[in-house]
């Protein structure tokens, strides 16, 4: 077992955010952590990333308690993508991706950098300055940086990704999650990704972990976790679950009664402003 979390509790400003949480993650497995806003997903991820002190329980990585790993050693095996990374300085895309491999001479890391920029579809942005990029482009740059850190690591690798596709268009979302799944299946990476998109999670995850008020509400295969009763209880969301031929569930939220009427939303106001805007027929 690569990652073993047992009875984990994390407090922020004295308040328990994650409570008595236990789960395991194996090499080659893609686990998606779901849950409503404020359920403790990011706090859990930061706890696993060593950012927060643990109030109770323990986390062990590759058979050794997290606190006992030397910082430099664990950085070779564990890469973390925070929810937001803001770059205020004129760094180019290539320079940022290279930050994932700080100790290596450029000539040595260049093949990895090129491969990752290619995989994440940012090769054409290589010499652009990061502050001028779109949100989705910046997110792909950060992901490339995170992957660069552990790309050719020997032994166990853990990826911790906090909403790593939140700013991406649907095509890039698919592309990134297929890449992550490929890394898990072919290279044995253990991937823990926090996400909100239930269908993306259902499509790519081996297992889902649904957090509710800092505790595990349910965990298991997408079909076991994504049920109408669970979604109603945790999110207050009324949805239909469709079993697709491809073998994974599709969550379709239901119309929750009539849409509140806004006076300003009369039909004339909702017409496209630009007449040349194409209408689907």
């Amino acid at each position: 077992m690569l990652l073993h979390v047992d009875g984990l509790g994390i407090h922020l400003a004295g308040k328990p955010i994650v409570r008595d949480l236990g789960f395991q993650l194996d090499a080659g497995e893609l686990l998606v952590v779901l849950g409503p806003n404020g359920a403790g997903k990011s706090t859990l991820l930061k706890g696993l990333a060593g950012e927060h002190r643990i109030a109770s329980g323990q986390i062990s990585f590759a058979g050794c308690t997290l606190q006992h790993w030397p910082k430099r050693e664990i950085a070779k095996r564990r890469a973390v993508m925070p929810q937001r990374v803001e770059v205020n300085f004129p760094l180019t895309v290539e320079e940022i991706v290279r930050l994932g491999r700080p100790a290596e001479p450029l000539s040595q890391s260049m093949p990895v950098l090129l491969e990752l920029m290619d995989l994440l579809d940012i090769a054409h942005l290589r010499y652009r300055l990061a502050p001028g990029l779109s949100g989705g482009e910046q997110q792909r740059v950060q992901l490339a940086r995170v992957l660069a850190q552990v790309w050719d690591a020997q032994g166990p690798v853990l990826l911790l990704l906090d909403e790593c596709t939140s700013a991406l268009d649907p095509a890039h979302q698919q592309q990134v999650f297929s890449l992550l799944r490929g890394l898990a299946k072919q290279r044995g990476f253990a991937v823990l990704a926090v996400a909100h998109d239930l269908n993306l999670a259902a499509r790519f995850a081996d297992r889902l972990l649904l957090l509710h008020h800092g505790q595990c509400y349910i965990s298991g295969k997408p079909f076991e976790v994504l049920s109408e009763t669970v979604l109603a209880a945790v999110y207050g969301l009324s949805a239909r679950i469709i079993k697709l031929e491809e073998g994974y569930p599709l969550v379709v939220p239901r119309d929750n009664g009539p849409v509140p009427a806004y006076a300003s939303l009369s039909p004339s106001n909702t017409a496209p402003v630009n007449p040349s805007c194409r209408q689907a027929s």
Binding site: E51, K71, V80, L91, G100
Partner: peptide, 20 residues
């Protein structure tokens, strides 16, 4: 120089990259 480079991405990233 190297840890400061990491600082440009945020304080938490410094730790993620293995610096103190």
């Amino acid at each position: 120089a190297r840890p400061l480079d990491a600082f440009l991405l945020g304080e938490q990233v410094v730790g993620h990259l293995g610096y103190n």
